[in-house]
């Protein structure tokens, strides 16, 4: 099933209250986090709690993604082993490399066989947060047919690059563009890094618009309060939807009349405009706007 992923909301993996409410916060996806949100002494507890939550908590159709610990740590492999058995929708792999994706893919295949899950049912979400990852997104995505999208992690990326992370985000212009373009080429979702300052509404809004304008398809959220704003920006605007519907109607009429090229409001409509209109309508339908 094709999904809308405008928001992916992070939820700390060792917090029962937040886990059991994760499905009612309106996000398209939730990321149950075993990595940064969990202290090193609670990794085992969070892994077991998240596994049980996936099996027992009602998430009301929200996509459930689990961010595991890096495979280079002593927790990563155990996370995959334990969590995959509960059949989350996807596993998010931090600091992803081709080798990591290969390992996770193979583990998922064997767990799916063992548990009787359909092959390929558990997806993979590589987290791009190193210079290596950024320069090799294409091959990282193509390592596994399970890859359905990429999340850009700007904090770790800028740390790896040895540059300062700013509110304006000029320093991640290249990374955002690279992620957006490569994901589009690979036909997977491109999810933007979260915005950390909950009190800066204007900055937050600007940041979402910037991400959308560069071609990212959604944005990670770190607080439920961020979800609605992101949805508003990423949903096609009403005007855009109306125009797209008119283009499609005009196209259908032109087809009936056997016309190849046609005009709407005095402007020629050709294949790219039709493709854009179809894309807008598809998104609007997924968002329940038409």
């Amino acid at each position: 099933m094709e999904r809308l992923r405008r928001t992916m909301l992070f939820m700390p993996g060792n917090n029962p209250s937040m886990l059991q409410n994760a499905g009612i916060l309106g996000a398209d996806s939730i990321i149950l986090d075993l990595e940064d949100a969990v202290s090193i002494t609670e990794k085992d507890a969070a892994r077991i709690l998240v596994r049980n939550a996936i099996k027992n908590v009602e998430f009301y159709g929200t996509e459930v993604v689990v961010r595991i610990n890096p495979l280079s740590s002593s927790f990563g492999l155990k996370d995959v082993e334990e969590i995959a058995k509960a059949k989350p929708d996807a596993i998010m792999v931090p600091k992803a490399t081709e080798e990591d994706i290969q390992i996770v893919d193979e583990m998922l295949s064997s767990i799916e066989t063992q548990e009787g899950f359909p092959h390929g049912s558990i997806k993979i979400f590589p987290l791009i947060e190193t210079a290596y990852g950024l320069e090799n997104i294409d091959s990282i995505i193509r390592t596994s047919s399970r890859a359905i999208g990429v999340l850009l992690g700007a904090e770790d990326l800028t740390a790896d690059l040895g540059i300062k992370r700013t509110r304006e985000g000029e320093e991640i212009f290249y990374a955002r563009s690279k992620v957006a373009s490569t994901c589009r080429a690979c036909k997977v979702d491109a999810i933007d890094t979260p915005f950390a300052d909950m009190n800066d509404c204007r900055g937050f809004n600007k940041d979402i618009h910037k991400a959308k304008s560069l071609g990212l398809t959604g944005k990670a959220a770190i607080n439920p309060r961020q979800v609605d704003t992101i949805h508003e920006v990423f949903a096609p605007a009403e005007e855009e939807i109306k125009y797209a519907l008119r283009v499609i109607k005009a196209m259908e009429e032109a087809q009936r009349e056997g016309k190849g090229v046609f005009s709407l409001d005095g402007k020629m409509v050709d294949a790219p405009i039709i493709a854009r209109a179809q894309n807008v309508v598809k998104k609007a339908k997924l968002a329940g706007l038409v």
Partner: peptide, 17 residues
Amino acid sequence: GALDYTIKARVETAVKR
């Protein structure tokens, strides 16, 4: 006020530890 899934998880974690 833990739900069953949390009770089970915490008991399992404590036992394994």
